[in-house]
Amino acid sequence: MQYNEIGKTGMKVSNLGFGASSLGGVFHGIREDEAIQAVHTAVDGGINFIDVSPYYGHLKAETVLGKALKDIKRDSYVLSTKVGRYGKDGVNYWDYSAKRAKESVYESMERLNVDFIDLINVHDVEFANLQQVVDETLPALVELRKEGVVGHVGITDLQPENLKWVIEHSEEGTVESILNFCHYCLNDNLLTEYFDFFEKRGIGVINASPFSMGLLSMRGAPDWHPATEALREACAKAARYCDEQGYPIDKLAIQYSTSCNDHIATTLFSSANPKNVLKNIDYVNEPIDLQFVDKVKEIIGDQMGVRWKNS
């Protein structure tokens, strides 16, 4: 496992990070004891960055993760959670007000059984009024940073142009890291167009969803995935080729997202299954076949970088 600094924060994190969305049963039902063991397996395997949100499973992911963290030394992991996006009684809702942001941080700490959040993020700013994020949400989190309640402040979104806008309109030093997903993976390198912008400002880059929300897997993307049919077919063709060559596409995908760019501090994957966690750690610790990467990109062809709605 390699370790990189997130921007100028001083936080050194593993190039493979643990995304705890699966602990909330976001993708399918889970066994809580197995999910807790998945967290322990990740940390034991060298992963020291854990990312979660009150939105995942509508508080369930943070609650389950909190149970897992009880048995892990606090100095052995860097913890990230979010504010702004929530859910209750099966209904999603958003609240980017300063008051709710501060309340949410303390509520998260209670569920997570910690008294300090290393990195607090404004979650999926595309759902917010971006000006409110600049004028209200971020300043509230900066206050908590000054008070020592949180260590660092970041923002997350699917659309990198939104991240850029918020940074450009915020006071320098407010945003210390960004989290973007599905835009640095085998079929999409859009995030690379923003690396210089982030680096010039000392802002760390966190990548997520190396499997492009299921596109880069033998199982294929779920029905709700917003990708075009042509992109689905291209990725499925690439997955079949990888399978025929004995080099699973999920292995290539996670190796690519964690080893092929120095601008990215860590790449998040999510699983509530200890065996899958261990498998992905093993994948990342093996050398990547870059010629195979080129072949897969060739198969995906003109569907490389094709964006879908809200991406």
Rank of each mutant, 00 (worst) to 15 (best):
S271H: 13
V52D: 10
T192L: 11
E193V: 02
V306W: 04
E199K: 14
A35I: 09
R31M: 14
M1P: 11
A234S: 09
F181G: 15
F127W: 13
N310L: 10
K82S: 05
S270R: 06
Q291Y: 07
L215M: 11
V166D: 09
L158F: 12
A238I: 11
L16S: 14
R111D: 09
Y106S: 00
A128W: 02
D223L: 11
E107H: 05
L144H: 12
G7I: 05
I155W: 08
G19H: 02
C242H: 07
H123K: 03
E171F: 01
G154C: 10
G87T: 02
F197M: 05
V133M: 10
L79R: 00
V13K: 15
G90V: 01
R232N: 04
I254Q: 13
I288K: 02
Q303W: 00
V26Q: 15
E229N: 14
M11N: 13
D44V: 02
A272S: 12
K82Y: 03
I203T: 07
K275H: 12
A265C: 05
I36D: 13
V105D: 04
N92F: 05
H58I: 01
E286R: 01
K295N: 09
P210F: 07
V293L: 07
F198D: 08
G24E: 07
M304D: 01
A38L: 12
I6W: 14
M218D: 15
P248M: 08
A101G: 10
G220K: 15
I300S: 11
E171N: 08
R31F: 14
L65W: 03
A265T: 12
F127R: 07
G25N: 05
G90Y: 02
K297F: 01
Q131T: 07
D118Q: 03
P248T: 05
I50D: 05
S53H: 03
E172D: 11
D157T: 04
G246F: 04
Y184R: 05
T41H: 07
V296Y: 00
P248S: 06
V39P: 15
G173P: 03
G46V: 06
R31Y: 13
V166A: 08
K60M: 06
K164P: 01
S53D: 10
V78S: 01
M11V: 11
F18T: 10
F198E: 04
E147G: 04
L190S: 10
V166K: 05
Y96A: 01
I281P: 03
D302T: 00
Y86W: 03
D51Q: 10
V134L: 10
R31K: 08
P274K: 04
L119H: 09
G204W: 08
K295T: 10
L23K: 12
L158R: 11
I30T: 14
L130F: 06
D115T: 01
T137R: 07
A238R: 12
I36R: 14
N92Q: 05
E176I: 05
N15Y: 13
F198H: 12
L119N: 09
D95M: 08
K102R: 12
L215V: 08
S217W: 12
R232W: 10
K275F: 04
I50S: 09
N48T: 14
G45V: 09
F198Q: 06
E298K: 09
Y241D: 00
D223C: 04
